[in-house]
């Protein structure tokens, strides 16, 4: 119960952060990605703000074996840099550049009732499902 409430709360704060920052607006994200046009550096400051807080949080988390609610810490341990990581990142980046949506802002814009965001999210979930199917085939063989 505590776990689910903390998840709900974290999701809500995350979403509010995306709205305040302007990142729920794809046109603003594209303004950052368009360095050859009139460049809007806002996204860089969003990242900077988030990372300033994140660095402190991870420094605290690293010294703990259990979370403050007593759950096990699930921090990624992989340091492997491979083709999957880079090809996945590149494909994601192309999609991001086409519409100006990454997953979080897509979901927030869906919550704001934007039909176009709903179309994006449905396609994104379909893409994730395609990945699951490919992975299951791969595991079988």
């Amino acid at each position: 119960m505590k776990y689910n409430l903390a998840s709900l709360f974290a999701g809500l704060i995350f979403g509010l952060g995306l709205i305040i920052s302007g990142m729920a607006n794809p046109e603003k994200v594209l303004g950052f990605l368009d360095i050859a046009g009139l460049w809007d550096p806002s996204l860089a400051l969003v990242m900077a703000g988030a990372i300033i807080v994140g660095v402190v949080a991870f420094a605290v988390a690293r010294r703990r074996t259990l979370s403050f609610l007593g759950f096990s810490m699930k921090i990624p341990t992989s340091t492997h840099i491979d083709k999957r990581l880079i090809i996945g990142g590149l494909s994601f980046g192309v999609g991001w550049g086409i519409a100006g949506f990454c997953p979080g802002p897509g979901l927030v814009a869906l919550g704001a009732g934007e039909i176009k965001a709903a179309v994006f999210v449905v396609a994104m979930v379909a893409g994730m499902a395609v990945f699951e199917l490919i992975e299951r085939q791969r595991v079988k063989t």
């Binding site: 996945g88 494909s91 994006f120 396609a123 994104m124 994730m128």
Partner: peptide
């Protein structure tokens, strides 16, 4: 875009 973001991020 959605398909690429979905497959790519996973």
């Amino acid at each position: 875009a959605g398909l690429l973001v979905g497959v790519g991020t996973r």
